[in-house]
Design a binder for these strands. Sequence first.
DNA 1: AAACAAACCTGTGCGC
DNA 2: TGCGCACAGGTTTGTT
Length: 279
Amino acid sequence: MPELPEVETVRRGLAAQVIGRRIRSVEVGRERTVRRTSRQALIDGLTGATIVAADRRGKYLVCPLDTGEALMVHLRMSGRLLVAAAGTARPLHTHVVLHLAGRPAQELWFVDPRTFGEMVVFDPEQVAEQIPELARLGPDPIADDLTRAVFAGLLRRHRQLKPLLLDQHVIAGVGNIYADESLHRARLRPDRLADTLTTREVGRLHESVLGVLREAVEAGGSTLADTQYVDIEGQGGWFQVHHRVYDRAGQRCLTCGRADIVRVVTGGRSTHFCPRCQR
DNA sequence: AAACAAACCTGTGCGC
DNA sequence: TGCGCACAGGTTTGTT
C-alpha cells in the first residue's frame, strides 16, 4: 500500500508527535512482525530508549534511538502506524504496541492485517549486514538531490520503464501508483525500453517523477476506496483525486479525452496507461 | 541481464 | 444470502 508519499506523511507525523519521547514498555503480539530478529530483540532494543529522530529512505522508516541503535519500520502492503491515547481499544491486527512515557499518555501501534510489514532494531553502523536491502537502495527522489544527469544514468539500461521505476535499487520510493502516474505525465508507455528514450523524454520523465511525488507528499499521499492507508492520526490523504490513470481501466483518459485507459500486467503488477497519450 | 511466476498473508468486491 | 475467484499500495526468491 504505502509508497514514498504515504511513508513520508507517516514520517512527518512521527517527527511531530513521537520524537523526544521515551518508550516505557513494548508489547509484541505476532512474532512474524519482528521475524528479522525476534520478539525479545525488539523489546530489549526499545524498552527505555528515546526516539531522537524520524528519517526515511524510500519506503523504509528509520528512527534513531538514544541508545545508538535505530528502529526500522517497513509498512509493506497493509501496515499502519497509529498514535492513540493510552488504553484506547486497539484495532484488529495490532501486532506491536509501544507505550510512550510522559504526557499525554499515548501508545504507538503497528497494525498490519497482511503481516508483510516488519519492525526491527538494528545497529546503523552495521546496516549492510543487518538490513542489506536498505543499504542497497537507489537514490530517493525527495530526500536526495536526484539530478537529471544522475537520473539519465539510471535509465541507461535495456529494461522496460515500469519495472525499472519499481526497482528500489534503481530509485527508492516509487511504487505502483506513482510509477503509473509518472509515466502518464511523461507521456511514455510503461513498456518502453529505457535505453530508447530521447534526451527530451528523459527530461520529461525526470520532471514527472519528481513532480508527482512532490505533489503527492503535499496532498498527504493517496487513500483509496478501501481507506487502508491513513497517517498516524488516522487521517487519509487526498492525492487520489488527482490520479489520471491508476485504477481507471476502461474509463476515459482525463488528459486527451479521446481514448480509454487500459490495464495490462507488467512485471507481475497491474499497469494503467493511455494508449493514445503515451508512447 | 531481464522477464516472469510464485511466495509470503488477510480482506474485500464481484459475478453467479 | 452464500460461495468462489480475482485482486490489492511490496519485496524476495527461484526459474526461464
